[in-house]
Every structure is written in C-alpha cells, then in structure tokens.
Amino acid sequence: MSALRDIQLGFARAVYADQLGEFSHAIRPGRFPAERHLQVYRNNVMLSLTEALKAVFPVVERLVSAGFFGYAADAFIRQHPPRSGNLHDFGAAFADFLGEFPEVATLAYLPDVARLEWAWHEAFHAAEHAALDLAKLGAIAPQAYDGLRFRLHPSARLIASPYPILRIWQANQPDVHDGQAIDLDQGGDYLLVIRHATDVVIEPLTRGDYDLLARFDAGETLSQAAAEVMAAQPEFDVGAALRQHVARATVVDFAREPFNYANQERP
C-alpha cells in the first residue's frame, strides 16, 4: 500500500475513531503535540457536519436542545460518515438513527419529526416538473384509464405518523413561541411534502388521499390503487381525488408502463 494511502487511512481513523495511534508519527513535531494538530481537523470535521445536520433538522434540534443535538450528531457522524462530497446527501439515515438512540427512546415522535424534516430537505432540492398535460390525458380512451400508472411530482414525499408531527413541526418553527402543550394522543398525521416553484409546503392529507398517492408512488395502476383504497374506505371518491391532485400538480404524469426511477433521486 502506498505511503499516501496509509496517511489518508490513518488520518480518517484519527478523526472518526479518535484513534491517533501510529498516525501520530506521521505528523511533524512542531510547537504543539501531534494530538493538538489533529484536534483542529477533528473539530473542523465534526463541527461542519454537525452544522450540516442542524441546517436540515432544526426542529429536532429545538426539541432536544442544542447541547443534546451536538451529542447525538457526534455519535451519528461517527457511525454514518458522509459517503459523498455532496452534503445534500448527508443525514438520510438520521431519523432511523434517532429511532435506535437509547437516550431519546422516551421521545417516540422524534424519528418521525426527523423524517418530516428530511422529506422537506429532499423536496427542496428535487427536480422541477410541469403540471400534467391534460391534452395528453385527453388522448387516452376513458376505458383505458384503469391501466394507467400516475406519477407524483418529483418533490412529493408522503409521511404517515401515529403522532401529531405537523403540529409539533409548526410549534417549533424559529419565529413561533407556542407555549401550548401538544397532546400526543390527539391522533396521527398523513402528510404530503411538496415543492411549488421554490416553496416547500407540508399539506395534511386524508387517509384515503394518502393511500391513493402512496399506491401511485409505488407504481400501481389506477385500478389496482382504487381497488385497494376503496376496500378500506368504500365511500372514498377516487375520481374526485385524482382530479384534485392533478389540478394541484401533485400528480404530474402518467404512463401505461411502470416508471423507471433509476435516474431519479428517490428515497
């Protein structure tokens, strides 16, 4: 192995695993002990990645306090260091990590709040897409609608939680000082996170709308999705819901064949 690679592997271990070990011999002795030199880099790395997480998960930070967030972020960064030089990708595993972090086990809603914030972050950077072309839909014979697969806007993310995470999210925005207690038993949320132009919005959905959009997102045809949704909720009007989601540009395209998401950044 090359001397250069040895240095890089030793450096990374010294930063992420706190093991200076043999690597200290690679550092030229100067005014400071080797550990001091390395500590500057360790601080830079941990601080910049913690800031990156804070920027994506400000509500989680506010819920657990800045001090505890730093502690959790430190553990997360060491377990899940970034795997690309594009920081937009960093933090995808944070919600699941919080779900297994013993210190926040009593905050059962916290991982879902983190999922909501990650969905917001993804929606913010997702691709643009025009509204559904009604002329293209008009060219389809109505009897063929059943076989169509409808596609959601690239920014659309669906989140379901047994906790009132939208209320929690709203009460913990920077300019909000909502002292009212939130009843965790008030019921859960079905949410759509989506970007209109440059603005990300979070919209509460009915159970039926959530199920329909989730089945579209999973690639089911209209008839498959409708059958499943109506088996659970016979009174749900699939046609009206579809028209509404087309009008609001939640549903933006359709095809007879399954969509190929290979080139898309999907969760």
């Binding site: 090359s2 001397a3 250069l4 690679r5 240095i7 890089q8 592997l9 450096f11 990374a12 930063v15 992420y16 690679a26 880099y41 830079n44 790395v45 910049s48 990645l49 990156a52 260091p81 970034p82 795997r83 690309s84 030089g85 920081l87 960093f90």
Partner: peptide, 25 residues
C-alpha cells in the same frame, strides 16, 4: 487537498504530504 478515503468523506480540506508520490498522484 483530499477529503475522502475508503468511501468516507470528512467534509474538510485535508492536507497532503508534499512528496514526489503525492505530486505524481
């Protein structure tokens, strides 16, 4: 500089040893 090794990124501008090997690389 370098900022990744073994697929892990450190999000910092890390120093290189200024050697003939590093120069060629």
């Amino acid at each position: 500089c370098w900022s990744s090794v073994g697929g892990d990124y450190l999000n910092d501008l890390l120093p290189l040893p200024y050697t003939p090997e590093a120069l060629a690389h």
